[in-house]
């Protein structure tokens, strides 16, 4: 029973190619963390509620604990490590979280960042209510969310500024 057929999975993560053979039952969250060694994606509940394991699959936010690694075959993955690689300065979204004290223990934070990235792309000038609704699929037990809302507002503004500057 334990020896299951293995399946190839090949794709890109944060722009880098990967190729492995995996058991089909291996969760994408475990694959990213333990096979690819990108441990910034965290696992909080493994039943799709807490959002700590959120990553981008072809640009859309998904719970990596509710996908099998084989399902990432031929797809593009992005994780928190892709936001600012190596010694690069923090992404404006990350910078805003620091500026506004939008994290405490930091365990849930990568999931928040990955949920927010496509949200802010789709809605660059969200209202507070829209921000709160966008956050509601991610649980944070430390902050009480207020500072996270501030961080998203700040990030939206600096991303808009960057966009304007880039367009000139």
């Amino acid at each position: 029973m334990a020896n299951q057929a293995r399946f190839p999975v090949r794709g890109t993560i944060n722009g880098e190619e990967f190729e492995r053979e995996v058991e089909p039952r291996l969760l994408l969250s475990d694959f990213i963390r333990h096979e690819l060694g990108l441990t910034g994606t965290h696992v909080g509940c493994e039943h799709g509620v807490c959002g700590a394991c959120t990553v981008l699959l072809d640009g859309e936010s998904v719970r990596s604990c509710l996908l099998f690694a084989v399902q990432a075959n031929g797809r593009k993955l992005e994780t928190v490590e892709g936001l600012s690689q190596g010694d690069a300065p923090l992404h404006p979204l990350q910078e805003a979280f620091r500026e506004e004290h939008g994290l405490q223990c930091g365990f849930c934070t990568p999931g928040f960042l990955m949920s927010l990235l496509p949200f802010l792309e789709e809605n660059p000038s969200p209202t507070d209510q829209e921000i709160r609704e966008a956050l509601s699929g991610n649980l944070c037990r430390c902050t009480g969310y207020d500072h996270i809302v501030n961080a998203v507002r700040t990030a939206a503004s600096s991303l808009r500024d960057a966009e304007t500057a880039g367009a000139e």
């Binding site: 963390r33 333990h34 990108l38 441990t39 910034g40 994606t41 965290h42 696992v43 994780t79 928190v80 490590e81 936001l83 600012s84 923090l90 990350q94 979280f97 620091r98 500026e99 004290h101 994290l103 930091g106 365990f107 934070t109 990568p110 960042l113």
Partner: peptide, 20 residues
């Protein structure tokens, strides 16, 4: 502003299951 945040925000802080 917190000094530990950069590590946490980059996903580089080592939590227990990150250590193997």
């Amino acid at each position: 502003r917190r000094l530990e945040d950069e590590k946490l925000l980059k996903g580089k802080a080592a939590f227990i299951d990150d250590i193997e």
